[in-house]
Design a protein around this nucleic acid. Structure first.
Length: 909
RNA sequence: GGGCGCUUAGCUCAGCUGGUUCAGAGCACCUGCCUUACAAGCAGGGGGUCGGGGGUUCAAAUCCCUCAGCGCCCACCA
C-alpha cells in the first residue's frame, strides 16, 4: 500500500475532490424509495460574493445534508440565486454612469437586456465560491428567481391574489428612496438616531388676532401644509378651532382643526398637518378629508408649490427656508433635537415619506394560518425564543407594499385601459382584454412597476421544486421533498422571507403543506470588537483568502466550533493582514487527524526484526490490547450516540466538540499511545494486524462521522487508508453505531475504572516529575501501593506505566518503600516516585501537610452534609451514597498521606 | 414605549431536565521537552466567591424575583 504524503495540502486535495464529486454527480438527488431529506438554500443575491455569514450558514446546511446522506436518506439541497432587484439595477446603473449614460438613455428593454448580460458576466461569483467551501448542492436543480418557470409562478400568484381581492392598488404614504427612485417595504427601512434642529415657526391667524407657534423638524414641507391640528381638550386652543392661519412664506390660509393626534404635552401642542409628507399626518388628513398636495418631487427636490425654493434639494431647501423664515420674523426659535429618522437599508439615504400609487398585499388572512403553523409546532423555530418575535409581527401585520419603481424584476402583470379607468391583472394583454370584456382592437398598457424581490423569494419552496403556477408542475418533486426538513438562515430576514414563505406555501401549495419543519437561525458574525463584519469597516476578510491559508475543512470546522446556536460569534479578525488566526484551531485538528492516520499506516507496513520476548510478556501485551480495544469500543459507542443526539437537537457546536475531544484525547493521546507501546511486544504479523485493523476500523468510523463538517480531508484519508476506488465517496458510506473488537468476550470489568485509575496514576507521576523539574531524560523508579481489584490491572500495565512516566521500574505493593520518595495519593493509589538525594524533605513535608489540610476541609464539608438530617432524608439515595463514598475515600487518602509523612521522618537522610 | 436575549478564567465561549471531586474547553500566559505520527506537537502549571442583591430547596452556575450593565427586534411623537 502507498503511504499517504507526509504533509497534507488542503488546497490541492480540496479542489481535486470537488471536481471528482461533480464528475460523479455525487450530490444529485431525485425522488426514490429512500427517506427524503431536503434543505432549501437561501438564494444568495446574484450580485453577492461570499462572506463569513455565508460560510457559517452554508457549512451548517452542508453538515445536515451530508449527515443525512450518510444515514441513508435521499438528501437534496436546492440551490439558487436571487435576482436582487435594487442591488443589481444599481450595479448596472453604476456601470452606465461610468459610460456617461443613464438607464433612460437605453430605455427599458435595452436596460433589461444589459442587466441580463451583466448577470451572465459577473453574476453568480458566489456559486463558484460555494463549491470551494465544499457545498454539496444538487446544482442541476439550481433556480434563478427570474427563470421562466419562476416568473410564471410569480405572475400566477399575483393574478390569483388580485382576483381574490388580496392585492390592491392605493395612494398611500410609502417609504420612498430618492436614490433608487422607488418605494421600499417597511422592512427595508432602518431607523437611526439623528441630531437635528427643531424649529418653532409662527403661523399668523388669518383674522390678524394672533399667532400660533408650531414646531417642526422639516420646515421645507410647510408648502404642503393643509391644516394645523390641536387637541380638542387643549383649553389653550379650543377657541381657535375652525379659524384659519396663514402658511408662512406661502401666504395661503389653512384651517385649524381638532384632532386627538395633537399631543398637548409636546412642543406647543400645535402640529402642522402635511399629509403627503408624513405618515401620521396622512392618517389625520384622511380622517378629516383634507387635500393632500405634495411639495417634493420623487428625486427629493422641491416642486413648484415651494415657489422660489422649487428645484432645491430637500436639505438645501431646509436651510434656505429657515433663513427666509428668520428674515420675515416667522421663526420663533431653533433648538437642537434628537430623534429617529428612517434610512434606506441599502442606499443609506434618508427615506422620504412619499404619497404615491402603489400595490399592496392584504396580509391579515395570509398571516393567520402561518401564525398557527408556528404555534402548533408544524414549523419549529430554533432557538425557540424567536417564536415570540414571530408571533408579535404576525399578529400586528401590516400590508405589504410590493411595487417597486424599477426595471429589473418581475413586471407587475396588470393592464390598464389607456384612460386608466379600467384595469385588471392577467397573464397577457389578450387575457386582460377578455377579463375586461374589451374588444381585440382595444389597446392596453402594462403597469410600469416591478415587484419587490421578496415577492418571488416567498415562493421559493414551490418554485425550486418546479412549480410554475399550474397544479401539475413539479408535483412529483413536491410530493417527495415537501415539506423540506430544515431552513438555515439569519434572524434578520425572519419577516422578509421566513414568515412570508410560510404564508405563501400554506396558501399556494396544492396540499397546503408548510414549507419546512425546522428553522435554524444562525448567529451573527462579529469582529473581536463586537462589530458586524462589513466591507466598509475593512473587518470582513474574503473567506476565499482565509480558505487558501487554512483549508476549507479547517474554516468549516472552526466556524461551527465557535458558533453555538443563537449567540453571536466573535472572530479575531486581523484587519491589517485580513487574517483570522483562530482558524488555526481547525487547521491543527486536520493536521492531527492526518498524522495519526499516517502513523497507523506506518505501523501497518512496518517490518519487524524478531525480538526476544517471553511468552508471558507477549500474552500480557495481548491482554492489554484487548482491554484497550474494549475500552475504546465503549467510548466510541458513547460518542456516536452523543453525536447523533447533538445533531438531532441542533447542538451543532457540541457535535464538533465531541469529535474534537474524542479524536484528540481518547483516540490519539490515550489509545494510540498505548497501542504504540503494546505493539512493541508483538512480532507476529497476524497478531499485530488484528489490533491495527481495529484501530483502523474505529478510524474509518471517525472519518465518516467527521465527514459532514470536514468533507475533503475525510475523503482524502478514506481513500488513502482504505484503498477505495476513486469514484466511490465516503459521503455514501454509513457510520456504525458499534464496532466489533478483535476478541469478543473479553472481560469488561476494567474498561472504565481500570483505565481511569491507570491514567490518573500516569498523570500523577508526570506531575511529580514536572513539579520537581526532573529532566525527561532521567528515568526514576515508581512504587505503587494499592488494594483490591485494581492491583491486578496495574500490575498488567507495568510496561505501559513505565513508558508513559519514564520510569525505569514500577513496583506494586513492595514494602516498605525505601530511599527518598515524593508521594501523591490518587484514586486510592499511593504513588511514590523515588528521586534519590534530590528531595527537599521540608518542602515535601509542607506539600503533604497542605494536601492533607485541603482534604480535611473537604471531609468536614461532606461530614456536615451527611449529618444534616434533611439531606439524608430527602436527597436521592444514590446521591447520599456518593457522599458517603467521598467521605471514606478522602479519609483513607488522608491516612495514607499521613503515613507517607511519618515514613519520611524515619527515613535516614 | 413594547418584546427578546446576554453577563462563568485575560479573551471567545461550553455547562441539557438542580446532586457523579462541577466550576470546564479552546486560545493566550508560565515551565520543561525537536521522546522517529504530529513543535500545526508533547508533558505539566497558574488563573474564576459563575454581574449585584434577595428567595425557593437538604442542595443553586443551573429554578423564581429584583437591580445594574450590554446587545437585538418591533413601533416611532411633530
Amino acid at each position: 500500500m502507498d503511504l499517504i504524503p507526509k504533509v497534507y495540502v488542503p488546497s490541492e486535495s480540496e479542489q481535486r475532490w470537488y471536481e471528482q464529486w461533480q464528475r460523479d454527480n455525487a450530490f444529485a438527488s431525485s425522488p426514490s424509495s429512500r427517506q427524503p431529506y431536503s434543505i432549501l438554500m437561501p438564494p444568495p443575491n446574484v450580485t453577492g460574493i461570499l462572506h463569513f455569514g455565508h460560510v457559517l450558514n452554508v457549512t451548517l446546511q452542508d453538515i445536515y445534508i451530508r449527515w443525512k446522506r450518510l444515514q441513508g436518506a435521499e438528501s437534496c439541497w436546492f440551490p439558487g440565486m436571487d435576482h436582487a432587484g435594487i442591488a443589481t439595477q444599481t450595479k448596472v446603473e453604476q456601470e452606465l454612469k461610468s459610460e456617461g449614460k443613464t438607464r433612460y438613455d437605453l430605455g427599458r428593454e435595452a436596460f433589461i437586456e444589459r442587466t441580463w448580460e451583466w448577470k451572465k458576466k459577473y453574476g453568480g461569483v458566489i456559486d463558484q465560491q460555494l463549491r470551494t467551501l465544499g457545498a454539496s448542492c444538487d446544482w442541476d436543480r439550481s433556480l434563478f428567481t427570474m427563470d421562466a418557470s419562476a416568473s410564471r409562478a410569480v405572475q400566477h400568484v399575483f393574478i390569483e391574489l388580485f382576483d381574490e381581492g388580496l392585492i390592491y392598488r392605493g395612494k398611500r404614504i410609502v417609504n420612498w428612496s430618492p436614490v433608487a427612485q422607488s418605494a421600499l417595504s417597511d422592512e427595508e427601512v432602518v431607523f437611526r438616531e439623528v441630531h437635528e434642529q427643531i424649529y418653532t415657526m409662527r403661523y399668523h391667524l388669518e383674522d390678524g388676532s394672533g399667532t400660533m407657534l408650531v414646531a417642526t423638524v422639516r420646515p421645507e414641507t410647510i408648502f404642503a401644509d393643509v391644516a394645523l391640528a390641536v387637541n380638542p381638550n387643549d383649553e389653550r386652543y379650543t377657541h381657535l378651532i375652525g379659524k384659519s392661519v396663514i402658511i408662512p412664506l406661502r401666504n395661503t390660509p389653512i384651517p385649524i382643526i381638532a384632532d386627538e393626534y395633537a399631543d398637548p404635552t409636546f412642543g406647543t401642542g400645535v402640529v402642522k398637518i402635511t399629509p403627503a409628507h408624513d405618515p401620521n399626518d396622512f392618517i389625520v388628513g384622511t380622517r378629516h378629508n383634507l387635500p393632500m398636495p405634495s411639495c417634493i418631487n420623487p428625486d427629493a427636490t422641491l416642486n413648484d408649490m415651494a415657489g422660489e425654493f422649487a428645484g432645491l434639494d430637500r436639505f438645501v431647501a431646509r436651510k434656505r427656508v429657515v433663513k427666509a423664515l428668520e428674515a420675515n420674523e416667522l421663526l420663533e426659535k431653533s433648538e437642537p433635537y434628537t430623534h429617529n429618522v428612517g434610512f434606506s437599508e441599502r442606499g443609506d439615504e434618508a427615506i422620504e415619506p412619499f404619497l404615491s400609487d402603489q400595490w399592496f398585499v392584504r396580509m391579515e388572512s395570509l398571516a393567520a394560518p402561518a401564525l398557527k403553523a408556528v404555534q402548533s409546532g408544524d414549523v419549529k423555530l430554533h432557538p425557540e425564543h424567536w417564536i415570540k418575535t414571530y408571533e408579535h409581527w404576525m399578529s400586528n401585520i401590516r400590508d405589504w407594499c410590493i411595487s417597486r419603481q424599477l426595471w429589473w424584476g418581475h413586471r407587475i402583470p396588470v393592464y390598464y385601459t389607456m384612460d386608466g379607468t379600467g384595469f385588471t391583472a392577467a397573464a397577457s394583454e389578450d387575457e386582460a382584454r377578455k377579463k375586461l370584456n374589451l374588444g381585440a382592437d382595444v389597446q392596453l398598457r402594462q403597469d410600469n412597476d416591478v415587484l419587490d424581490t421578496w415577492f418571488s423569494a416567498w415562493l421559493w419552496p414551490l418554485t425550486t421544486m418546479g412549480w410554475d403556477g399550474t397544479p401539475e408542475s413539479g408535483k412529483e418533486i413536491r410530493d417527495f421533498y415537501l415539506p423540506t426538513n430544515l431552513l438555515v438562515t439569519g434572524p434578520d430576514i425572519i419577516f422578509f422571507w421566513v414568515a412570508r414563505m410560510i404564508m405563501a406555501t400554506l396558501k399556494f401549495d396544492v396540499k397546503k403543506r408548510v414549507p419546512f419543519t425546522d428553522v435554524y437561525f444562525t448567529s451573527i458574525i462579529r469582529d473581536s470588537k463586537g462589530r458586524k463584519l462589513s466591507k466598509s469597516l475593512g473587518n470582513s476578510p474574503d473567506p476565499i483568502g482565509v480558505i487558501d491559508r487554512y483549508g476549507a475543512d479547517a474554516v468549516r470546522f472552526t466556524m461551527i466550533y465557535l458558533a453555538p446556536l443563537g449567540t453571536d460569534v466573535r472572530l479575531d479578525v486581523d484587519e491589517k493582514t485580513q487574517d483570522i488566526p483562530s482558524m488555526e484551531l481547525g487547521r491543527n485538528f486536520a493536521n492531527k487527524i492526518w498524522n495519526v492516520a499516517r502513523f497507523l499506516q506506518m505501523k501497518k507496513s512496518e517490518q519487524r526484526d524478531a525480538e526476544v520476548r517471553s511468552d508471558q510478556e507477549i500474552a500480557n501485551a495481548i491482554l492489554r490490547l484487548q482491554y484497550d480495544a474494549t475500552w475504546l469500543k465503549y467510548r466510541y459507542e458513547g460518542v456516536y450516540k452523543d453525536i447523533k443526539a447533538a445533531l438531532d437537537d441542533f447542538r451543532i457546536t457540541e457535535y464538533s466538540k465531541l469529535l474534537h475531544e474524542f479524536i484528540w484525547i481518547d483516540y490519539c493521546s490515550i489509545y494510540v499511545e498505548k497501542l504504540k507501546i503494546n505493539l512493541e511486544f508483538l512480532e507476529d504479523q497476524n497478531e499485530r494486524a488484528k489490533y491495527l485493523e481495529f484501530a483502523f476500523s474505529i478510524m474509518e468510523n471517525l472519518l465518516i462521522l467527521l465527514h459532514p463538517v470536514m468533507p475533503f480531508i475525510t475523503e482524502e484519508l478514506w481513500h488513502g487508508l482504505f484503498s477505495k476506488p476513486t469514484d466511490v465517496s465516503i459521503g455514501n458510506s454509513t457510520p456504525h453505531a458499534s464496532v466489533p473488537t478483535p476478541d469478543e468476550g473479553i472481560e469488561e470489568r476494567y474498561h472504565t475504572t481500570g483505565q481511569a485509575v491507570l491514567l490518573a496514576v500516569v498523570e500523577s507521576v508526570r506531575r511529580m516529575r514536572s513539579e520537581l523539574n526532573i529532566s525527561p531524560s532521567i528515568k526514576l523508579p515508581v512504587v505503587l501501593e494499592a488494594d483490591g481489584d485494581v492491583v491486578e490491572f496495574l500490575a498488567l500495565h507495568i510496561p505501559v506505566i513505565m513508558s508513559m512516566t519514564r520510569a525505569n521500574s514500577v513496583s506494586i505493593n513492595i514494602d516498605p518503600p525505601l530511599g527518598k520518595y515524593t508521594t501523591q495519593v490518587v484514586r486510592g493509589v499511593n504513588i511514590a516516585l523515588e528521586v534519590g538525594g534530590t528531595i527537599d524533605v521540608e518542602k515535601e513535608r509542607e506539600r503533604l501537610t497542605k494536601e492533607i489540610e485541603r482534604l480535611q476541609v473537604l471531609v468536614r464539608g461532606v461530614s456536615a452534609k451527611l449529618s444534616n438530617e434533611g439531606f439524608v432524608a430527602k436527597a436521592k439515595p444514590e446521591v447520599v451514597e456518593a457522599e458517603r463514598k467521598k467521605l471514606s475515600d478522602w479519609t483513607q487518602t488522608i491516612e495514607t498521606l499521613q503515613r507517607n509523612m511519618d515514613a519520611m521522618a524515619s527515613t535516614p537522610q
